[in-house]
Design a protein around this nucleic acid. Structure first.
Lengths: 226, 226
DNA sequence: CATAAAAACGAACGGTCGTTTTATTGCCTG
DNA sequence: CAGGCAATAAAACGACCGTTCGTTTTTATG
């Protein structure tokens, strides 16, 4: 509502008027992805979206041949945003637990900054599509799988560096860490209370602390550094 | 038309001498709650529901004055089922960690037995309603709050019995345990793979193991209790 | 058994859905 | 300045939404 697309009142000055199609498509998708985390993919109607973006329903069809294509484009847009807001900050950190913490922090931060007003786009959409097969569902699951794979890679690297017990089970660790993040999303969206982001951060730390000392009472000088 | 609530046949026999309305209402609600975990509360149309229970759309209005009342009735029905399938089994166990394990097991078991085909009714519906205020949302949050309170009560009892470090923070423990269960629901519905139920069980055990030994978090200096 | 109430029906309503068709605008290019 | 084209608008489409209506069937009861 605060960006380019607010051309409701015809103030059509001589502002950057070129390549309107591209701008318009991007503005539509940005509004759409944000709206979808509130109303859901199916719940978001073309009428709603058109009104929100300040154009007519039929105008949308200049950019998308049907709603499925719009949904797929929304997913791609959300994937780009997720990459920019979460994956890339994580990749800028060093590997191992440092990168894992960076990934968790970036994820929780994007919740806190309400990059999507309805919380994590992919958690929201996956919950809606989990029992509804189709291309949209497949793509969403793919993005989530890639995210889980990044977490797993961090654990593996942490084992190679010696930050984490080499006998720890990677999948179990990924499940537990992702559990903290998913629940943070669930409860934060539900309650608007920042405490759940803190709880998730501590939960991740607790998991990492256990993984660093799991088998036998080892030297504890390594695990927690902060 | 293929599953439970097989419409007329099962109800029409000479068995039930009670008022038919009551039976019918129950049959409708049973089908509706199950269907709602797949299609969502809003996504479930009266046409779909009527077809599934084998009656006409207008026939539904003999039992519910409008869709909101139907939704509220569905939530109450789901609450009764949840009570029967999860809460009561937990309450039959002794207090403390034993009851907490029983609660987690009962929850995971009701996922595995597909009491609701779309997974946990309240997780599913809460995710849909979290940004849509109303009576339905309030009631759903209430049920979830009660569930969390039960988990918290178990932790408290476990502290009194001495099973859990008395310095452990109850809310943090509840968050982490609920995180395992919610994620089990998320990934199990998503993938149909039982492994996620096992991962959740292990996750809960890992949380309990930590609570029995140390306060966790950053202060790991001391605190071995057994 | 009679009869009133409860339950279920089929048809129709106004509204909104996604979609298509047709028409109008405004910018770029020749 | 003419023409073309991308972008949008307006209007209409059939399908389905939740809902109401009048009527008929089923059930409970005096």
């Amino acid at each position: 509502m605060s960006n380019v697309s607010s051309s409701k009142n015809s103030l059509e000055g001589k502002e950057p008027r070129r390549s309107k199609g591209q701008n318009s498509r991007e503005a539509i998708l940005l509004t759409a992805t944000r709206l979808a985390t509130i109303k859901g993919l199916s719940g978001l109607s073309l009428g709603d979206l058109a009104a929100e973006v300040g154009m007519s329903k039929s105008g949308l069809y200049a950019h998308f041949k049907d709603k499925e294509e719009l949904e797929l484009a929304m997913i791609e847009t959300a994937a780009v945003i997720f990459d920019h807001e979460v994956l890339q900050p994580a990749m800028r950190a060093n590997g191992g637990t440092e990168r894992l913490r960076a990934a968790a922090d970036a994820y929780l931060s994007h919740l806190e900054r309400r990059v999507f007003p309805g919380g994590c786009f992919f958690a929201s959409v996956a919950a809606e599509l989990d029992t509804r097969p189709g291309r949209a569902r497949d793509r969403v699951f793919e993005v989530i799988a890639r995210w889980l794979s990044l977490l797993g890679q961090c654990i593996l690297e942490a084992q190679e560096i010696g930050e984490i017990d080499s006998k720890a089970e990677v999948d179990q660790a990924v499940f537990e860490i992702e559990a903290m993040l998913l629940s943070a999303n669930f409860f934060f969206v539900m309650s608007n209370d920042l405490i759940h982001l803190t709880q998730a951060r501590r939960g991740v730390e607790n998991v990492l602390a256990r993984l660093a000392v799991s088998v036998g009472s080892k030297n504890k000088g390594r695990g927690l550094t902060n």
